[in-house]
Structure formats: C-alpha cells, structure tokens
Nucleic acid binder design. Sequence first.
DNA 1: ACCTGAACACCGTTCAAGT
DNA 2: ACCTGAACACCGTTCAAGT
Lengths: 225, 225
Amino acid sequence: MSKKAPSIRRRRESLSRDRIIQAAIELLDSGGEDGLTFRALAERLATGPGAIYWHMADKSDLVTGACDTLIARTVQDCVGATPEATIRVLALGMFDAMSAHPWLGAALASPAGQLPIVRILEPLGQQVCALGIPEDTRWAAVSALVSYILGVGGQNAANGQLARTRGLDRSEFLDAVATMWSQLNAREYPFTRSLAVRLRTHDDRLDFLTGIDLILRGIESTRGS
Amino acid sequence: MSKKAPSIRRRRESLSRDRIIQAAIELLDSGGEDGLTFRALAERLATGPGAIYWHMADKSDLVTGACDTLIARTVQDCVGATPEATIRVLALGMFDAMSAHPWLGAALASPAGQLPIVRILEPLGQQVCALGIPEDTRWAAVSALVSYILGVGGQNAANGQLARTRGLDRSEFLDAVATMWSQLNAREYPFTRSLAVRLRTHDDRLDFLTGIDLILRGIESTRGS
DNA sequence: ACCTGAACACCGTTCAAGT
DNA sequence: ACCTGAACACCGTTCAAGT
C-alpha cells in the first residue's frame, strides 16, 4: 500500500511470513479449520507447498501466526474510563474477533494458541492490578476472566462449526438445538429443557457481557477481604 | 463380567458400540488426540477399519461417545451439603476428569463435545436454581460456570499436549513456560512476567477452585438485586 | 537465498465381497 | 446382520533439484 513504487505489478511480490499468514487467515475465514491446507495455501499464493516451509516451521506455526496477528489487532488501543470498563472492552473485543473468525476460539484452545493468549492475559492482568486487587487473588481473578473468555469462544466456535457442517444459518441452528433440548427426558433434564425456550431469543453478546460483569462483581467482592 | 458362561473364551466377543468406545478412550489416553485412528482402533479390536463403521457413524461419533461416557461417569452421584458445595464437587470432578484424560478438554470444545456438555450443564443448572437465583440471571450464572470449567480444561489440555509433544514432564514444562515468560519485554509484559515466579509453585487444582468460588460469589451477589 | 513439485507415510471413509 | 480389507481421495512434511 505504500506509494514508493507507483505502478509496479504487485502480483509477483515474493513470499513473506506476513503475506503467508494473511492468506492463511483468509483461508480459515472462508473454509474453517479444514480450509487451511498447505496445498490450498500454496495455490492461493501461486507457489508450491514446499515454498511455504521456507518461511514457516509447520502447520502449528501457521495457526499461531494467524491467532497472534488477530489478537494483536484486537487488543491494541483498548481503553475505557475505568479498569472495569477497559476489561469489558477487551473482553468484548475478543468476543467479536471470535465471532468474526469462528475458527479462532478453537485455535486459541489448541497448543498453537498458548503463545498468542499471553497478548490478552497481559492487558487483563494490568487492569486487574489497577482495580486494586490484593496480589494473592490477582491470579484467580485474571485466570477466571481468561478462562471464561476462551470457554465462551470455544463454545461459539464449536457451534459455528456444527452449524456450518449441516449447512444451517444461525437462527436455523439455534432452532435445531432448542428443539433437541426440548425433546430431552423431562425428569432428567428439567433445567436444560427450560433453557430451550430462552435459546431462540437470547443475545449471545449481551449474555457474554453479563457473564463478565458477574465475574467482575466476584472479583470486587474480594477486594475488602 | 457376568457369570452365566463361566469359561467361554472371551477373546472373541463380538464388536459393540460400548466395546469400541472403551477402546477409543484407551487409545486417546495413551496417545492423545492423534492416537485415535481407525486403523489403530481396528488393530486393538482385532478387526478391520470397515467393521467399526458398522457400529459408529464416523470419527466424530467416536469422540462424542468417548466424552459422553466419561462425563456421565464423572457427574453421577455428585452431591454436597449445600448447592454451593455440590457445584464445587461437580466442577472439581470435571477438573479431575480432564486431568486424567488430557484430550477431554479439547474434545469437549469441539463440535463433537456439544452434546456431552449437556450432561454437566444440567446438574449445574439445577444447583444454581437451588441457590435461589432469579430466573433472568440464571443463564448468566450457569453459562459463566460452564464456560469457566471448559476454558480451564481447554487450557490444561493444550498445555498437556504441548508438554507431551516436547517430551517434558509437568514440572519441566512449567519451568519452560516460566522461563519464556520471564524473558518477555519488561515494559510490554510486566504482569505476565510477574506471574512467571508464581507459575513454578502454583497448584492448578487449588487455583481452579478459587476461580469457582470467585464466580460463586459473583452469582450470590446478584441474589438480592 | 529462495522456490519447485514429486514422493512418502500417513489419514478418514467407502464399498464390493465375503460369512 | 455383521465383518473384511483393498481402494480412493485426501493430508502434512521432506527433499533432491533447480534458479
């Protein structure tokens, strides 16, 4: 995008880690986890599978790079008026990123995602410190936030992948799950059945935020002790 | 194990869904997620890959069955003196199951895990109801608990898989992570660096329980509102 | 230094053929 | 009804060979 070389044919730019990772993200976005293949990636980059191995160690390196790029983008410039507000913004940013890239939740839960997770662990930890939480409960607070965010993300990813496999859109899928739940044995599964109704109308994003607020309240209640 | 046919050679019991799932669990336990293969499974059951397809729909069916069997075992007979105590027992049971079967966390976060998750959703939901939480915040409460449990499980699974790949035992692995964290840029990653020390000595199970208690306190603080 | 593409050792899944 | 095992269409990864 620089203006230095105005009308050079940019079709044959040489391969680079960044270009490869960008192409990997596009493949993941359009085809899910199974869509990322060395052969498909090579084709998209107009080269052979072997060329990619010159720049990337292996498939795990590819996934780590994709996660890292997206999380870095999500986390930058997240600020709110208070520590609580910033935590909410960070959490919502992750939620939205995982919604926009349904493979992200699963990838972060894989070994390849462990390094990128540090990028979200750090700012959350800083905000928890800013909340004035005593040192011995800081880890529990941050761990609860991170695990909750990743847990919700993983669930969304799994549901999205399930829906895609069956060729359903979001509301069709929710309807299918709701129907399945409402057919569960009434004596064994009263609670899950009672959720079935709620499922069709609920707002994922709002529910997610409610969960964050719940954890924040739990965190703040430890401040005095 | 019945006594009906005392000395029949039990080597050639015919295939069944249960026997296949049991073998699948053993394979997953010993070889991780990559260890479960139709060919390896067939060999262990002294048959061909095709035979398994007579009893199971596909690999996803295999994984769902394995998760379902383990969760059902974990959840049964979980009772405590109070709803809070029961929730703790349920959560710890899941934590221990995911520690004993390191592939379980990842499997539950995959599409194949969505059905088995209902088995843990239900008793948690029932206990949250028993806590007297108003209906409109029940879902947030249960969702926070389930997501947290699955999130922690997923992280443990990812770490375990990473450690296994590099042939490290638990303390060697923690040491490696702690070292990596302590080498992060001091200005960008002060919080993560401060965790590095703690990491070598912390108790996963205890930290997990602290997180559960944190969420429980958050839940209880909504009871009045 | 960087790329090519055939080849290797695997997968999940299918299916004609057997009993 | 249940099982066999060869065959198909893929994978990730390697590596001699090119430029």
